[in-house]
């Protein structure tokens, strides 16, 4: 049996952390795109669109992310394709993030005062113009802090993909523990790396929120 120095452990964990970062970015960006599409369905006119998005959000927020990962992993397999773990992880995390982001953003759009809609329509603006020039610019401002805050949930969510066999930081932690028999040290370092990834995001979300409140008081 060979010996492992703390540096060996740290280096391997950091190498694996790259995949945590990649998966987080892909899930967040993908989730944002799908979430934006869902948002337009949710706040648009008609009955089927909003009902669909409501059900979608209820299902993804009402079931464990781990189950969604399992269903993506085994569900995609039903189509006869050999599903790599990263694909199932990406698909599940994108759909999961989309559900939360669309709900966050809906709150932001609905926070815009009704008078703004009425004022813009009295100026003869159509739905698209109202959105483009009046509602979205204001909604985007209040959407930034909670959106940044949610990115922390995405980074933490990627830890669960280790369970379906995607090798990222958590999985690497388990592998390294099995080689070194030092779970206290290894999981401690893993937690610290996650903290270093997440804490700046949490903090900037708080700072953005404070800045925005200052801007709001001036209105």
């Amino acid at each position: 049996m060979s010996d492992f120095t703390t540096w060996d452990i740290l280096r391997n964990l950091l190498l694996a952390a790259r995949w945590t970062v990649v998966l987080s970015v892909v899930s967040f960006v993908g989730g944002a795109i799908v979430g934006a599409l869902l948002l337009f369905m949710r706040i648009g006119k008609g009955r089927a669109g909003p009902a669909f998005v409501k059900a979608y959000v209820e299902i993804f927020q009402g079931t464990p992310l781990l189950m969604q990962l399992f269903l993506a992993f085994f569900g995609l397999g039903l189509f006869g394709i050999d599903v790599p773990a990263w694909l199932a992880a990406g698909v599940a995390l994108i759909l999961w993030s989309a559900a939360f982001l669309t709900e966050i953003w809906r709150g932001c759009v609905e926070a815009i005062a009704r008078g703004q809609w009425e004022a813009s329509s009295s100026l003869g603006m159509g739905y698209v113009q109202q959105m483009r020039y009046v509602i979205l610019p204001q909604a985007l401002r209040i959407a930034v802090p909670p959106t940044v805050g949610f990115s922390v949930q995405v980074v933490k969510g990627t830890a669960l993909t280790s369970i379906i066999g995607f090798v990222e930081l958590s999985k690497a932690g388990t592998i390294v523990t099995n080689a070194t028999f030092e779970p206290f040290k290894v999981y401690g370092i893993v937690a610290l790396i996650y903290f270093c990834l997440c804490w700046p995001l949490s903090k900037s979300s708080q700072i953005l929120e404070r800045k925005l409140n200052v801007a709001h008081r001036n209105h």
Partner: peptide, 23 residues
């Protein structure tokens, strides 16, 4: 609070179950 809110639940679980016996 900051430590818990910025690390995944899975790692907290592993740390408690696998890590704490070392102490």
């Amino acid at each position: 609070v900051e430590m818990i809110r910025n690390t995944p639940f899975l790692i907290q679980l592993f740390f408690i179950f696998f890590g704490l016996p070392a102490l």
